[in-house]
Computed example of a mutant assay.
Amino acid sequence: MPPPARRPVGTVTRGTTNPNRLRRVDRWIGYALGGLLRSAAGSPVVVDLGYGASPVTVLELADRLRGVREDVRVVGVEIDPERVERGRPLADPPWVDFARGGFEVPLPAGLGADARPLVVRAFNVLRQYDEVEVWPAWQRVVDRLAPGGSLVEGTCDELGRLAAWVDVRRGEDGLATPRTLTISLRLAGLETPSVVAERLPKALIHRNVPGERVHTVLGALDRAWERAAPLASFGARQRFVATARSLREDGWPVVDGPARWRLGELSLDWAAVAPS
């Protein structure tokens, strides 16, 4: 007899999703992890972990990443069997497929017994867990990654206008090691950049209090935004570019540049926001 199937690791989340909700993080994956995908030997595997009630974000991710690597293979992984079955009619294996599972990140048998994901995107999943569960979940996913792979874990609002995510890798000691925090904002109508606080990843959202680094960073970001107010007449993009440049000049470890800032996106070294 075959061994009994392992129970997926995790719990069923609300599953709310919308078309284009994850466009900001998809765009960042193509930019920041594009080199990783292009240099992969063989067809790289990318997982949309916990994609929710609709498989639309799986299909959108596959479509966007084909512009980076034509032979990318995208797998939607969901713990809810009904959601997996909802996606199967849209599968196109091995290029797009679906599997039932959780943080153990199973892959379809057709990809081979030794297949490992190079990138795992987990959005709006850990938000519904307790903070103490974040690092063990990160570790479990990172243990499944291909060498050099990345876990992109974060949260966004219902329409994808506010988002924040962490790039987590495997450290030399084998432990899950966050590298950067990225925030991404819809600049039109933006009052203060710190509005993203309500969409911080679970590892940080409860840390936005005095004495914590992320709270200090968001305060510095708002002050830089206020100083750049005279540029508002030239448009929100110019104002945000000036804001990000000012933040860097103030000594904060901003790791990207104007091309990303114009999109309302800013990445910081994790050390600047790590919980105390």
Results as ranks from 00 to 15, higher is better:
Val72Cys: 12
Val75Gln: 01
Val105His: 15
Arg83Ser: 10
Gly154Arg: 01
Pro93Gly: 06
Ala146His: 09
Gly52Asp: 11
Ala113Gly: 14
Val75Asp: 00
Val74Arg: 05
Pro147Phe: 12
Gly110Ser: 06
Leu61Lys: 15
Pro147Val: 02
Arg169Cys: 05
Phe123Glu: 15
Asp114Ala: 05
Asp157Met: 05
Gly171Glu: 05
Arg169Ser: 11
Val96Glu: 12
Val46Lys: 01
Val105Gly: 14
Trp95His: 07
Ile79Tyr: 00
Pro106Phe: 05
Val68Met: 14
Glu158Phe: 09
Gly101Cys: 02
Trp138Pro: 07
Ala137Thr: 07
Gly154Asn: 10
Phe123Lys: 14
Asp92Pro: 04
Gly171Tyr: 03
Glu78Cys: 03
Asp143Leu: 14
Tyr51Lys: 07
Val96Phe: 06
Val46Gln: 04
Thr57Ser: 06
Pro94Gly: 00
Trp95Cys: 01
Ala176Ile: 06
Pro55Gly: 12
Glu70Trp: 08
Trp95Met: 08
Pro108Tyr: 02
Gln139Trp: 04
Gly171Thr: 08
Arg69Gln: 09
Pro89Phe: 10
Val168Ala: 02
Ser150Met: 10
Glu82Ala: 08
Ala109His: 09
Val47Asp: 09
Arg161Asn: 13
Val119Asn: 07
Val56Met: 04
Gly160Thr: 13
Ile79Lys: 02
Gly76Phe: 12
Gly154Trp: 06
Val72Ile: 10
Leu61Val: 05
Leu159Asp: 11
Gly67Thr: 08
Asp92Val: 12
Thr155Asn: 13
Arg66Asp: 13
Val120Thr: 07
Asp48Lys: 14
Gly87Ala: 00
Val56Asp: 01
Gly110Val: 04
Val77Phe: 04
Val46Ile: 11
Pro108Ala: 06
Asp71Val: 03
Ala164Gly: 03
Arg86Tyr: 12
Pro108Asn: 03
